[in-house]
Design a binder for these strands. Structure first.
Lengths: 343, 343
DNA sequence: GACGATTCTCAAAGCGCTTTGGCAGACCGA
DNA sequence: TCGGTCTGCCAAAGCGCTTTGAGAATCGTC
């Protein structure tokens, strides 16, 4: 059933039916009622492509999710971010287009999207230091919003981010207050902007306490259980092992816990662990009491907000850049305690 | 740059330029060369909506991913499945449209997609027992492929699935061969078809060994770390605790391991664990030697194949239903051993 | 040199919608 | 009664592409 057929059934012109359905004022309320009723009855839904062609709007947002070229890893936060964004989109009648892409040809994908015209805007994931994509998107002229920020990028852009520096500063200070002095940092990949900020927060807090960060205790890699296990095993074997770990994701923390237990130590007593927690739906930090002491911010909520912000930026292109900084909350779990007395 | 402008630049008609770019035979090779070169130079890419409108094909596939209404959980396998499917799509020039949807109004989404015409087919995720979506999609007339199967559904349909029954049968038999007699099953939600098949495999193997499955040792829930921990803690506190666990995902297994360690037991010595492993990129089962003994099948590979199969079904609608049954492989890790002697 | 076959190119219709510009009729005040 | 303003509706153009049906140009053949 298309518009033409529907209008014939109603004995009205396509114009009137279209206007009636799209809420234009210049149509009799009684006529509108009839039209809406008929549309419902015949299960009429306008063809998205035709509508898009006529209006110039695609009613869709693109997400380009990069795959780490080396490790082929898909960041597990995407599932939840996308679930959050999807909620906002479906409320607004937008679709979500996803491209999974090897890092190297992201620009091509953006240009494709622009010229193929199948999206009205994009969400940029996993920004790196001084990320070139931001400049490219500006030049291409595709509205976008960055999930995260890109330090060193001097062009204005819209973003939503967690205050990563502050979160890690607080987490580090929390460990310092418990008496820990040798704290290991298991960070995400440090070409990523969020990892750089987290490291800065960690180092700030140490400096404020008069401690020099020890490079031997700082590691950076893809955030997997394996990384946590490997790095923690090595660290615990050092002549002067750390008494605490600050790690960038629950998966890393789980690996650290495994290493701690393999060393016949007890987490929370012998070794403390604080983790960043994205509050993923399938990887909750304990049901009632948290397993890990954590700085937490819901990535799903971030997805919801990111989508809303981008949509409003698209709806009103005159708007200045939008941004939003979320604060992570520090929740105390069973994985931390005062520093153990050296035996 | 659109077709009209390009053809004016070339001094050719839109027809000729279109045919040249789409590889039609009735165009001079020299002309085609000129056209292709100009298209490259001006970075011309046909507008997807206009093309779709003209051809009736959307060049996009929809994925409807359901959110568990009760727990709001997004199954973590989606990230990898979609990464796999995405590879096949981009090779074929297709886009991927994702709808995240509360279980209840999936049918509406399918009808929307059909009448809005923004996809050429859909992948159906997480089929349940006698899943009503299969009948609906048949009726709607939207090509589809099911990731999994739906027992009790008597309509023909295309699918790709892992031999879940066989995988769990083998895993159970493996434990039986090690002398285990009390084996706990921590299964996925048993309204899901894969969970039903896994349970059947488990029970088959037990029956064959002359053992009656003990309902007190069988649990079914969303596959989270928390579930594994909770269920294992309870099971280990039974008067007659299990000596082994067979679980449906690595996340569950991680929870089980936590419970085992909290009980001051050793996994692989006191208690054996076998898990199903989807081979998720961010949740590898150990780097070199597997942590858990596991039956493994890559969900990413399944995504790749699913996409290919659906595309070929769409390309050739006359084809009979396609199906593909993948076998999981059993790899032995550190989490299993002969049954411990009762002390 | 005429003619059909072949090769290349084109104008125009059509995909399903929105939107511009306009037209008939009702209504009102003068 | 007449001109003007609203109200409610419509015909037709246009979005950017594909595809049909046909015409011009070239060629080989008798």
């Amino acid at each position: 059933m298309n518009l033409k057929q529907l209008s014939e059934k109603l004995g009205l012109s396509q114009t009137t039916v279209s206007r009636a359905l799209n809420g234009y004022p210049e149509v009799n309320e009684e006529t509108r009622r009839r039209v809406v009723e008929a549309a419902r009855q015949y299960d009429y839904r306008p063809n998205a492509r035709a509508k898009g062609l006529a209006t110039g709007r695609a009613m869709a947002i693109g997400h380009v999710i990069p795959i780490s070229a080396k490790f082929e890893i898909v960041n597990p936060i995407f599932a939840d971010f996308i679930a959050g964004a999807g909620e906002s989109y479906s409320k607004a009648g937008y679709d979500m287009l996803i491209s999974v892409v090897r890092n190297d040809d992201e620009e091509r994908v953006y240009r494709d999207m622009k010229s193929k015209g199948n999206v009205d805007g994009v969400i940029v994931h996993s920004p790196r230091l001084n990320d070139s994509r931001i400049g490219q998107l500006h030049e291409i002229g595709l509205p976008f919003l960055v999930h995260g920020r890109s330090s060193g990028c001097d062009i204005g852009y819209s973003w939503i981010d967690v205050n990563n520096r502050r979160a890690f500063e607080r987490a580090t200070r929390f460990l310092l207050d418990l008496g820990h002095r040798r704290i290991a940092l298991l960070n995400g990949p440090e070409m990523m902007d969020f990892a750089i900020r987290r490291r800065a927060g960690f180092e700030n807090a140490l400096h404020d306490a008069g401690i020099d960060p020890d490079p031997a205790l700082m590691h950076s890699a893809e955030m997997t259980e394996g990384f946590g296990h490997r790095a923690a095993t090595e660290a615990l074997a050092l002549p002067e092992p750390p008494t605490a770990f600050l790690v960038a994701s629950i998966l890393i923390a789980i690996g650290v816990r495994r290493a701690i237990e393999e060393s016949h130590l007890t987490m929370g007593r012998d070794i403390s662990v604080v983790t960043y927690d994205d509050d993923l739906s399938y990887l909750r930090n304990g049901d009632d009491i948290p397993i890990f002491t954590a700085v937490r911010s819901s990535v799903r909520e971030a997805g919801r907000l990111a989508a809303e912000m981008l949509l409003s930026a698209i709806a009103d292109p005159g708007l200045p850049h939008l941004d939003r900084l979320l604060e992570a909350e520090l929740t105390v779990g069973q994985s931390t305690g005062p520093v153990a007395v050296r035996s």
